[in-house]
Structure formats: structure tokens, C-alpha cells
Amino acid sequence: MRIAVISDYFLDYVGGAQTSMLQQRLALTEAGHDVLMVSPTRGRGARFQPDGAELRIRPLFTLPGLQLPVIPNSASIRAELGRAFREHGVEVVHVQTEFGLAHAAADVAAELGIPLVHTVHTFYWASEGWNAPLAPLLRVLLQRILHSRLPRLTLSPRPVDSLLRNLTLAMSLRADVVVSPSAHQARDLTAAGVQGEIAIVPNPIATPTVPSVPLSAEMVRVPSFLWVARCEAVKRPLVFAEAALEALRTRPGSFTVDFVGDGSELAALRKMTAGEPGIRVHGSLTHERVLAIMDASSAVVLTSLGFDNQPMTIAEAVSRERGVLYCDPKLKEGLGNAGYLSKTPDAMGLADALTELSEDPTLLLRLSEGAARDRELFGPQGYVRLILGAYTR
């Protein structure tokens, strides 16, 4: 099958959606399908940069801090997408974001009579409360970039969050098929107004070029925990740093923590943890380096609350036979045997969980064994079977 995957995001930025898209492409191509990846590119050069199975597009500009490229839905963008879709014989357009490039692809798919599939990587947009007065202006700007109008449903008490959820909803309402990696997000999309059955397709992991290694007793003697995500408030790195510092204060040297990821809270994280030898803050690393640290860790930590639908952190940790310490009970899908839910989601609850896991390393060994059983859910063959079913509905 010939599929076009569309992303408004830079694919080299460390984020769950980007990782998922790259893993999806690999799973599909290894199964014999053709994937045209359409995404923004950094730097200078021609506006449109076709390169075999990729079409890279230089954005109009990039929002600083957010690392969000802006590609408006314009006549020239639609013309280039139409050319690429016809040249590659695209049979399905699979958008995985909701901004200008995705809407341009949706317009072209409709014009060419190609089915449109939309994967919702998160419906749970979360912003800072201070920006509420900007919501009306942001709506106007978004609609100009999208070349489309947005619904006006109240989907969150925070105006900007509600607007961004309407942004996601607008794309889902345009799609022939909507895909959600988790059942709990699918239920919320249905409640928001998405019609028809939503396909539940977990995020795949298709790159085990280096075999996973089961956790050993030696590796849990002084456990090492890996926190890996965007260093933004929605992922709560500072909350986990507070938890780790508190647990290490009561039991010095009982475990170590690695923080991996870039974002607006990285500087505050470095300052907060400075002087604690048991905490290492790496910033952004290559995916290969992240996997190496994950393999050397005893467990992976996920501290988002009410934001994620099914983080790639879960899929990657389980695929590497590592348990996951988490605090949001909605994220239990895929963690039936590999998950350790903190009693409360705050810093004290996470500190208690760190203490429990480091005091009784057999818990970590059991989580690793459980991950070996849970990881089948995220296998590439299962993903291909489910997504092809969505494509051919």
C-alpha cells in the first residue's frame, strides 16, 4: 500500500509524536509498504525538498521556545502536495498533527478522492493559565494558518486549552477514520463529537536492532531511574526532581536518576538538581543514546498527569524490558504487568514510590519480567495489521 504520513513537527525534535511517526514508518516499510513522509525541515535551501520517500518543506518561520514550525495551508503548499501524492500514487493520506500542513494535506486528499486518516497523539493540550486573554487572537491566527474554521465547543475550562482541543477535534471531524493509541482518549474524542468508531492502534516499536536485555540482580543493587520526555511543564520534570531530591535526602545514595530531554524547564531543572551527585541532567540526546541509557536503567519514569494519551515512553520502556513508574491512572494501558503506579501523583507520592522500589529491588525485577510479557502489544506486526484495517475501512 502507498501511504503519505504528514507531520507539522520537526521529526528530529525529541517528542513522543515524532518518535511514533518514525516507528510507524519503519514498521510499514519493513512490511513491504511504501511510505511518503512529509514534514518540515530546518535550515536554508529550497522551499520544497523532495528526496525519494520524503518531502521536506521549509516552514515560513519557527515559533521560538516551542520549536513549532509554521507552514500555512496555502495554494503553493497544496499544489506541491498534490504533485507529490500523484507522483507517488498515494492511496491513503495519514495526518498525525493538526496545523497548517495537515490541513493542506486534508484539502488535497479531498480533492483527489484519497481517504484521510487522522491519528490523535494527544487531545489533552495543556497551557499556562496566564495566556487566557490571548485565546481570541490565537483563534484568528490559527484559522488563517489552517485556511479553515474551528469549532467553538467548551472542551476545557482554560480558553487556550479549549481552543487547542477544538483544533484537534476539527481535524478528526474531517477524517474518514480517526486513530487513537489509547482507549481512554478514544472515549473522550467520542464525547467531544467524533462520529463513528475510533480505531485503537497502540504506538509501535519497530527498531530493536540491539536485542533488549532483561534486568539483572546486579543492575538493581543501586537502581537507576530514567526520566525521558520534553522538559516542559506538562511532563512535570520539576515535580519528579523534587521527588527524587526528597527520597535521596532520606536515603542518600540509594538510587540514581537520569533526566533526558530539552525544553523550557531544562535550565530550572539543572539549577534545582545542581550539587546532587545522584541526579544527572543530560538535555537532548540522540535516540540511540537514549536507548543505551534506558538499557542501563532499572526502570523508566513517566510523570505527566492528565496530558498524555499513550506516551511513547511506555512503548519504548516495555520493548526494552523495563518497568515504568507512573502517576496517572489513565495511562495503565500497556502496563498490565510492567507498571508501578504511585499512590499519589504529587512529589511526595513519587518520592515514596522511589523509596519503595529502591528498598525492595525484587519489585523492579518483577516489573522487568512483566514488561517482557506486555511488549507484544507494541510489536510492529500488530501495528501493521491494525493500521491496515483502519486504512481499508
Rank of each mutant, 00 (worst) to 15 (best):
V384C: 04
Y13S: 15
P223C: 13
A217G: 13
R270G: 01
G100C: 05
S319M: 08
L138R: 09
L153I: 07
L163C: 05
D107C: 00
L266H: 08
S162H: 09
R230T: 08
A183K: 10
A105D: 06
A75Y: 04
H184M: 02
A192K: 14
L164P: 05
E376L: 03
H33D: 11
L101W: 10
G263V: 08
M1Q: 07
L169T: 11
A372P: 02
W125D: 14
V210R: 08
E128K: 13
A46N: 11
V95P: 09
L101A: 01
V35F: 02
G82W: 03
L245G: 06
E197V: 00
R144W: 14
P361W: 12
A110C: 00
W125C: 04
Y13H: 15
N166K: 02
A268R: 11
A371M: 05
K343Q: 15
V35K: 07
L60D: 12
T313M: 12
G65C: 04
Q96P: 01
T355P: 03
P361Q: 04
L164M: 14
L138H: 08
A199H: 10
G253K: 05
A106E: 08
A267V: 02
D34H: 15
E197C: 00
T19H: 05
A372Q: 10
T62L: 05
R375A: 11
V177E: 13
R322P: 11
A347R: 10
L367K: 08
L26V: 05
A247H: 04
T362N: 07
L141D: 00
E276F: 00
R187G: 02
L11Y: 01
A106M: 02
A372T: 10
Q67T: 14
S284P: 02
T313K: 09
E288P: 03
W227F: 15
L142V: 04
S20V: 13
T362R: 07
R251T: 11
P115E: 01
Q143M: 12
L285K: 09
S216N: 08
L238Y: 03
Q143L: 10
V92F: 01
A353Y: 09
A175N: 12
G193K: 10
L146T: 05
H94N: 02
T207L: 11
G16Y: 03
G389C: 06
A186F: 05
C231Y: 08
